[in-house]
Design a protein around this nucleic acid. Sequence first.
DNA 1: ATTGACCTTACCATGATGGGAAGGTCTATC
DNA 2: GATAGACCTTCCCATCATGGTAAGGTCAAT
Lengths: 136, 136
Amino acid sequence: MNIGQAADASGVSAKMIRYYEQIGLIRPPSRTGSNYRVYGSDEVHVLRFIRRSRTLGFSIEETSALLALWQDKTRASGEVRDIASEHISALETKIAELESMVGTLKHLVHCCQGDNRPDCPILDDLAGTHSKTKGH
Amino acid sequence: MNIGQAADASGVSAKMIRYYEQIGLIRPPSRTGSNYRVYGSDEVHVLRFIRRSRTLGFSIEETSALLALWQDKTRASGEVRDIASEHISALETKIAELESMVGTLKHLVHCCQGDNRPDCPILDDLAGTHSKTKGH
DNA sequence: ATTGACCTTACCATGATGGGAAGGTCTATC
DNA sequence: GATAGACCTTCCCATCATGGTAAGGTCAAT
């Protein structure tokens, strides 16, 4: 299997497959006589694992740890759960931050006439020219 | 005022002030005879505006647009509201994605024993070795 | 043999920020 | 004055994950 076919089969772009190899996330595959990378179903399986992990928002580093645990037959599932739990916490923090932003912005948009007058509470808030943003 | 003092007064690092100047977000300030940048309260005001905008998650590009509108006395507040509304939508999409990730991960963690057995539903899900992840 | 689709490596770009080096300047103290 | 230390200047590099592009080699079908 060529890299393009492995890319199609795994959903990871050829560009990324080479990158993952370069940073040591995956092993260098064997090559043909003309220096083409050759992949088998095992490699595709690994690539799918990586893709799913990335889709779930795990960083490359976390993905690398999960991959090692996956391939380690003697692993303890507690380690995996810890990684996932910490990732959940990080995601929830991020969500809370975004929700806070959205809350502020919605309030500002609600207060904004949206007409042609030069007054604009959104800009006023950004400029910090008034005392309070929140609290009706 | 030197760049360090402007940084302290605005909450934007000196490094970032120079960067904003370099990309054209802010105007180059005047210089002393010894080539030091000199800032006044107007510049600090602009920097605070930028900082607040970035804190609310607006990109540099969006911040640039908002800054132009802020400094345009004849602006229509509708434009500002449109930028903010679109940003809210983008943030909400992001939040929904993150919540979806968290939902999946929580389910997986819930199913994971966290003991020393090699079975781990989280890894199984990442590997895609079973039919369903969701749906109890 | 030619063509077109694929592969290879190598370099550059993103967005926003931080780090550091090498060298110049200002201020306070001796 | 001189010296020390805190500041300033520019320039380059790194991040993180991904995409693009260019120059050149290879394969399969016509």
